[in-house]
Design a protein around this nucleic acid. Structure first.
Length: 243
DNA sequence: CCGGTTGTTCAGCG
DNA sequence: GCGCTGAACAACCG
């Protein structure tokens, strides 16, 4: 559930509730969720992995972390963290982080760093990479201030696609590879979106969870790489290490 | 049944 | 104050 493209799918699914009034609220969130009762949803939007429900003067931020999930017009067995009931239908969130954003979201969020956003700015991402040359490519892709919305699957697939070793230092990347890393972070995210919508995402994984390299058939390395120590799959033959 | 994880924050320590 | 580590959270899959 948690990577950026999955949040975009959710945003599309809840569009019928835009402009609608919340009749009642339930859930085991520790936040004061009852303040949402009677409120009208002005908009649903997102920044990276943050799903945002906008109201007059504030917003609700849902973060699904690793285990979060949702149901629209149906319920799970387990107790919802937040359940929004409308005259016609309901939206239920489970095992997620719920927070209120009291400030104007245009001030809180930098839309240019969201790889799925129309305002995505590749040049800004490049500048951030250049400013942190010793950062490893596998960590850079997971940095939400640079590539908001990119998660561990996208990280692995982007690096495999562009043939860059995950432990390469971004400052050592030839400019062409750096630009490819940036453009593919966005491109792959949109491929992810389409594949996920069509329930064929896993089928398209080339490196993530794979045992052998689909290009040269040698075993892939599986390692907890970088400062982020996340599962990383790579081929030492066709992914070049720049350091 | 157990181990592992599409993620993030924070306390504690050196 | 810093960076690093581990815990916490908590659900599902193989």
């Amino acid at each position: 559930m948690p990577e950026g493209p999955s949040i975009v799918i959710l945003k599309e699914l809840v569009q019928p509730f835009k402009g609608k009034k919340i009749i009642s609220v339930e859930g085991n969130s520790k936040q004061d969720i009852q303040r949402l009762a009677g409120q009208k949803v002005i908009d649903f939007t997102s920044w990276g992995k943050h799903f945002l429900i906008c109201f007059k003067g504030f917003a609700v931020r849902i973060h699904f972390m690793l285990f979060g999930s949702y149901r629209i017009n149906e319920q799970k067995e387990s107790k919802a963290r937040l359940s929004l009931q409308f005259k016609k239908g309901e939206i239920n969130f489970y095992a997620c982080s719920v927070q209120f954003v009291e400030d104007d979201i245009d001030l809180v969020y930098n839309w240019t760093s969201d790889v799925m956003n129309d305002n995505w700015d590749a040049t800004a991402a490049k500048q951030k990479l250049i400013e942190q040359p010793s950062m490893l490519a596998c960590d850079a892709l997971l940095d939400q201030q640079i590539f908001s919305g990119v998660g561990n699957i996208i990280k692995n697939e982007v690096l495999f696609r562009i043939r860059v070793h995950p432990e390469s230092e971004v400052g050592r990347l030839p400019i062409q590879q750096m630009e490819e890393l940036i453009s593919e972070a966005r491109n792959y995210s949109f491929d992810f979106l389409e594949w996920k919508k069509n329930y064929v995402l896993k089928k398209h994984w080339l490196a993530y969870t794979k045992k052998t390299c689909p290009r040269c058939n040698i075993p892939l390395i599986k390692k907890l790489a970088g400062k982020t120590k996340r599962r990383t799959f790579f081929c030492t033959n066709c992914q070049e290490l720049y350091k």
